[in-house]
Design a protein around this nucleic acid. Structure first.
Ligand code: FES
Ligand code: FES
Lengths: 162, 162
DNA sequence: TAAATAAAAGACAAAAATATCTTTAATTAT
DNA sequence: ATAATTAAAGATATTTTTGTCTTTTATTTA
């Protein structure tokens, strides 16, 4: 569905929204560890998301790191896709035709017509802050470690970040 | 959403279903021209789809080519995705977590939970023959040429293939 | 001011996806 | 049998994606 870039972008954004605020910034090491992504690669992706400091903000130097403002938290998740240039998934033809329209529909168009807007709406309506809240409540996960299947973390290993 | 491989695979399959039968086989040149795809690459993809001759059949030599049986036309479009190894899109976590479950849901899981099965159902229920019929009726398109926007074909240029 | 810290920027590397080209094998028609 | 045709198979090339490493810049603390 999405590229690794988009996946990491979304997971990182929601994690940053959960863990940070203007005076509790968070570093790339911690982020990539939490979302199970390669640190350097994730750093590159975050550079896309900090352009204009509209979505994710960052400051360099000691006590620096990434964070989000209350404003940014109100943005729709779609903004993340836009910043990494992958909002096309929600707009373009599923079969890769150059044009998606009623005039020249691909064989899936009519059936996909109902689903595509729902998918798009989903990304428009999901608010980053809301998703972060659910993550904070322990209801959702942005990384592979934790509970569920897979190997369990060591008991008492959760020296929570804050 | 899908890779080029999957896109070409679906478009080619539907086109073959429309244009061919056991004694009107169709060659790779014609297929790739019709679906606007690179010929050699499409040939490779068709090799995946002819494995076992369950979906697409082929014979070599003069008057050879690709074709589909009536049986094959009854298969769901999902089969194409399976044969090119991309049915994961319909099953795996949208955010790329290793596991997708209620026990360890990603932040999008609960909202995507309604859509994913609908998408999957779509591919299970779409029957190749049905889609080919609509293509044959001129209601849908598998290539970029034709009508709609873009440049029009020369009037009278449609020396129909059959 | 100097040293330490952390992201930004840039260069580089590896892997995967996409695309092309060549050779081989099967089939048909002559 | 021979030649022609067409897909299969294999090798190779290109591009894009993913990932790493190094250097630079901004910022803070000592
Ligand atoms: S033309 Fe393919 S989805 Fe609209
Ligand atoms: S866990 Fe991500 S979609 Fe189910």
């Amino acid at each position: 569905m999405f590229s690794k870039t988009a996946e990491y972008a979304i997971r990182a954004t929601i994690f940053i929204a959960q863990k940070s605020d203007p005076d509790h910034k968070i570093g790339i090491e911690e982020i990539s560890k939490a979302i199970d992504s390669p640190a350097s690669f994730t750093a590159k992706i975050l550079q896309m998301l900090t352009r204009g400091q509209e979505l994710i903000s960052s400051v360099r130097g000691p006590n620096g790191g990434f964070f989000m403002t209350a404003e940014a938290r109100k943005l729709p998740l779609l903004r993340v896709l836009e910043l990494v240039g992958e909002d096309g998934v929600l707009k373009k033809c599923v079969l890769g035709l150059k044009e998606c329209s009623e005039e020249k529909p691909c064989p899936l168009h009519h059936r996909y017509r109902k689903l595509k807007p729902e998918l798009a709406r989903m990304f428009e309506e999901m608010q980053i802050g809301q998703l972060a809240g659910e993550l904070d409540a322990g209801a959702t996960f942005v990384g592979n470690k934790g509970r569920g299947a897979g190997k369990r973390p060591m008991p008492g290993g959760s020296k929570a970040t804050r």
